[in-house]
């Protein structure tokens, strides 16, 4: 087990390095550098540019240095000092901006993963055991629709229904009175009251995919000879199902977090934008639109790293459950 974790961690290092390179490349892509963007921003608002201040900025980000040095300055500041640079649009350190929003993104994503599992598991199980039943057809149809409807359309549709039928405004994660309030039990309850809509919207596609996978896996297992043997020995149907085929079918279920997580992180951006949630998604969009690249790069970096770490955790979990994975047998 330790060997597996070590191997897996070793594989993660080049991935993390590549992610940092890509994020840095995105920061560098727009024409001009941070200093020239800042100058044009200041001039647009009619302010004069302080040359000494500009020099300090060039010094701070190493803008006169070759690109490799710039990359090193950027990444070492992040890793060693937790300094992600400055957002010129907000005139705040990027780290401060993210500290309030990133936890909400993580809460939203994790709740959605839990939701996906809780919903997909019984439905997938039912669809496989009662194949071609009425319920199976409903589940399959809903599954297909869930995969075909873009997240934002679902969000818009739900919002429209909420607005016209229930006359409620469903945007945001908090009611107005809790928006700026410190954390308390009441604020937490308020968050839960708002969280369910984005969770449903985000979780639909993943749930649909998981139902199909679990159904297919379980159907493969259910027709194997060992099930017939167990049945002929007089074991009850429930016991047969839960003792053997389900355990085999569940392990791919766990490993799906590897593809569900990137999907959710992508979806989060669109859904949060539509429902105006105070998460990292809308912040990233605004940063990209105004070419506030240090902010955008930092968000892309953090979100990708979190995804990779999440995948790692699910792999370790899977290895604990399934010795074939742990020992590297295919």
């Amino acid at each position: 087990m330790l060997g597996f974790v070590a191997r897996r961690l070793g594989l993660m290092v080049p991935t993390l390095f590549a992610i940092s390179l890509v994020s840095f490349a995105i920061i560098q892509l727009p024409p001009g550098d941070y200093a020239t963007t800042l100058v044009s921003q200041l001039e647009d608002s009619g302010q004069t540019v302080d040359t000494a201040q500009l020099e300090a900025i060039r010094e701070r980000y190493g803008l006169d240095q070759p690109i490799v040095v710039q990359y090193w300055t950027w990444i070492s500041n992040i890793v060693l000092h937790g300094d992600f640079g400055q957002s010129f649009q907000w005139n705040q350190p990027v780290a401060d901006l993210l500290s309030s929003r990133l936890p909400l993104t993580i809460v939203l994503t994790l709740s959605t993963v839990l939701f996906t599992w809780i919903v997909a598991f019984p439905i997938g199980l039912y669809s496989a055991v009662r194949q071609y039943s009425w319920g199976d057809y409903v589940a399959t149809t809903v599954g297909f629709l869930g995969l075909a409807i873009p997240n934002f359309l679902l969000a818009l549709g739900l919002m429209y229904i909420a607005l016209t039928v229930f006359d409620a405004d469903v945007g945001g994660l908090f009611s107005a009175e809790y928006e700026e309030a410190p954390w308390s039990l009441a604020r937490f309850a308020d968050l839960l009251g708002h969280l369910w809509i984005p969770v449903i919207v985000l979780g639909t596609a993943g749930t649909a995919g998981l139902i199909r996978i679990l159904r297919a896996n379980l159907l493969d297992e259910l027709h194997k000879p060992y099930v017939v043997a167990a049945r002929s020995r007089g074991l009850s149907e429930t016991r047969i199902l839960f003792k053997y085929p389900l355990r085999v079918a569940v392990s791919p279920f766990l490993s799906t977090i590897g593809w569900v997580l990137p999907l959710l992180v992508s979806g989060e951006i669109v859904v949060s934008q539509v429902l105006s949630l105070p998460t990292t998604g809308p912040l990233l969009l605004r940063a990209l639109r105004s070419q506030d690249m240090y902010l955008a790069g930092a968000i892309i970096l953090l979100v990708s790293v979190l995804t990779v770490v999440g995948t790692l955790l699910s792999d370790i979990l899977l290895a604990r459950m399934d010795p074939r994975v742990r020992l590297g047998i295919r």
Binding site: S23, L29, G258, W259, P262, S266, I269, V303, S304, V308
Partner: peptide, 12 residues
């Protein structure tokens, strides 16, 4: 495959 694609697309 391990990357969330949308942020990357958006960035590009």
């Amino acid at each position: 495959m391990s990357l969330p694609t949308l942020p990357l697309w958006l960035g590009l």
